[in-house]
């Protein structure tokens, strides 16, 4: 089991400049037995994302904990993947590893990681549907949630939502 700092160092060795920022945050919980939980936040370059996930998966299989969250700014959308590493061993080994990267609004594309983590497929389909980010190499491109009669370009989770009538 690697310490968050060690994971970062290994990743840095592998992708170099692709790693933009990183941070470790600790959270404590419990009453009589205080347990600490380290959270590793990594910010990547968009181009380095697929390679990094493949590399991290080799350290230990990643579990995707939550669909991708997003933060929208003027020029870009930041996509946040809450992964868990060392999951499924029991023994309190699980560590949150939150990977994020920016996607410029002029070029809303990213690449699918279903070839590495097959379980992520529904979340990537949701990202494509809700945020309008095109996910390349996605094996299944159908919409999941929004009604069939919704107009083209309806993206519910973007800041300025189109297609909703003001009542």
């Amino acid at each position: 089991m690697l310490h968050p700092e060690e994971i970062v160092n290994k990743l840095k060795e592998y992708i170099g400049d692709g790693l933009l920022e990183w941070e470790v945050r600790t959270r404590f919980d419990g009453v009589t037995n205080i347990r600490e939980q380290k959270h590793l936040y990594i910010k990547l370059n968009r181009g380095a994302f697929h390679r990094s996930v493949a590399f991290l998966y080799k350290i230990s299989p990643l579990h995707i904990s939550c669909p991708m969250a997003s933060i929208e700014s003027e020029e870009a959308i930041e996509l946040i993947y809450p992964f868990m590493i060392y999951s499924g061993h029991g023994d309190q080994t699980e560590q949150p590893l939150i990977v994020s990267y920016d996607i410029p609004k002029s070029d809303l594309r990213t690449v699918s990681v279903t070839d590495i983590i097959p379980g992520i497929i529904i979340m990537e389909r949701e990202t494509q549907e809700m945020l309008g980010i095109e996910v390349e190499n996605l094996p299944d491109e159908r919409r999941i949630f929004t009604p069939d009669n919704m107009e083209e370009g309806f993206l519910p989770l973007r800041d300025k939502v189109s297609g909703i009538s003001e009542e």
């Binding site: 419990g30 009589t32 037995n33 347990r35 309190q92």
Partner: peptide, 10 residues
């Protein structure tokens, strides 16, 4: 067991 919340760590 994996991610300590509430009274579970106790």
């Amino acid at each position: 067991a994996d991610y300590a919340v509430n009274a579970y760590p106790d």
